[in-house]
Design a protein around this nucleic acid. Structure first.
Lengths: 285, 285
DNA sequence: TTCTCCGATTTTGTGCACAATCCGCAGGGC
DNA sequence: GCCCTGCGGATTGTGCACAAAATCGGAGAA
């Protein structure tokens, strides 16, 4: 899928972000810290072992504990999850199919770094699908079913709590889960599954292109959406959702220059005092 | 993903459709007939071997040369494509991720047989995505770019030729490719990729639920759509596309009784003379 | 000092062999 | 006569060992 040139450029970039250490032990230690430990440390066998690993890695990527470009070494992951390397390989193949990781032949697996174009496409796809989701929800008779209403209320409370205490990681995860929740309510499991992938990829795009200064309050927008859905005029919820998605995308830096190779000259232009600042952490540092 | 009960019911059903023979040789011979041979018979290694096998099996399923429920034995496929069993296993995992085949633990891979609910969901998802595709195409300034117009014209000619000579298999494949072509023109590769999967799954749904009497002429509807897109009033193309998708779905038998287990009593009720008719072909017959 | 080449080491890719599981069938018990 | 249980054959699942490829480090030359 990737051309050779693209792959090379990708790897060159990824070196700067790769978590590495001297040999396996160090890498293992970091991985163990980043990835949430499985239920029992040693036991890795069992029926849903693969699903568990997929979820674990997927969540770590969605939470941005594993930033785009991070190398996912098979051996390290195998040790972290207490399974054989073959099983990890299978999991990586699955995640690659979902475009969450990128497999480069003879080079290994990396957390995917979407291009700006791909990021735009993902958000466009989300708008397409979530428009249908909201249409379905607005067709529901109001008041909404108690179960739905209650779950939304609980979710909003959790988002606002995370926002209040400043738990950014939880906020990111909950924000994605909110959209997932709506899709589940819409009653089309196929569409919901497609959206689940797109949400994960959105998370990657945000991690890759987020502006330094950006700070959205998804919780507020989500609450307004739910209020419009429950008691607003027809079409209000739809408008809020579209604006919300636009707003999330607008907070990214998807200029052309962000795509592809970085122009080092422009990056370091007019900054002669760089030496005195905190050094950028590089591989092995 | 599948519950145990569902898996068992599925397998019981699939037995009726499974291509089987005594031992490997017979199965191999049938597979070799069904699947288009790779470029060179023996050689299976190489860079894009997996992609080639995925495409080959995927096309065979889309063309309905491999009907839903067909067992895809690893050994047979390995021999057909001249690769090792591990590679086939990898391919099957990929196809399972795309919901085109169903993997049942310790039982093997089968061409997926969607449920009626899933079939409805797939068509709903297609409507959602293709609506966006047509919206994008209708936003294009007219006349359409020469390249697009020419490709559409060539494609329509091929569809009509296939219809004329009665090449049903080619017609099925071309019908799917038409929608794929439109999505490619819309310029969102991500959405086009999602739609590609949905088209494959539509093909499965059609194979599973097609009415005996159904005979649509997609070629005619496709031509009308192109004419509307090129020179019709605004919204005409959209209306034709939505009607087209509705029509395709309407030709399926998605009643509740088609879903899940077949009620044998109702199937054979009031037909005391069954014995004299041609016996139903069962496995091994 | 910097660039290039080359060997050592690490990591990924693949085939193979064995273990686990399941289906079909025959034999025995109820 | 029917059902349950145990056994044989076949197929899938998994670990292991080796092969292939790439990276990293150092040595040597310009």
């Amino acid at each position: 899928m990737h051309g050779q040139g693209a792959a090379t450029a990708f790897v060159r970039w990824s070196v700067l972000c790769t978590i590495r250490g001297e040999g396996l032990n160090s890498s293992y230690a970091i991985m163990k810290t980043v990835l949430s430990a499985p239920r029992r440390a040693v036991r890795g066998r069992g029926e849903g072992a693969e699903a568990r690993i997929v979820r674990s890695i997927g969540e770590a990527i969605a939470d941005r504990r594993l930033p785009p470009g991070t190398k996912l070494a098979e051996e390290s992951l195998a040790e972290v999850f207490g399974v054989s390397r073959e099983r990890v390989r299978k999991v990586l193949l699955l995640l690659a199919q979902r475009r969450v990781v990128t497999l480069i032949p003879n080079r290994g697996a990396f957390v995917a770094k979407p291009t700006a174009r791909e990021a735009r496409e993902v958000f466009e796809a989300r708008r397409v699908i979530e428009r249908a989701v909201v249409e379905a929800l607005e067709r529901e008779p109001r008041p909404l079913p108690d179960e739905m209403s209650a779950k939304l209320r609980v979710h909003l409370a959790r988002e606002e709590e995370a926002d209040r205490v400043g738990d950014r990681m939880a906020l990111i995860r909950l924000s994605g889960q909110f959209h997932q929740l709506l899709a589940d309510f819409a009653g089309n499991a196929t569409l919901a599954g497609i959206l689940a992938d797109l949400i994960d990829r959105s998370s990657l795009a945000i991690a890759a292109f987020e502006r330094r200064s950006s700070h959205s309050c998804s919780a507020t927008e989500h609450r307004r959406f739910v209020e419009a859905l429950e008691s607003g005029p027809p079409g209000a919820a739809m408008r809020l959702m579209m604006e919300h998605l636009d707003e999330v995308e607008r907070q990214l830096d998807l200029d052309a220059r962000s795509d592809g190779a970085v122009d080092l000259k422009s990056v370091f232009a007019d900054r002669p005092a760089d030496r005195t600042e905190e050094p950028v952490r590089t591989a092995g540092g």
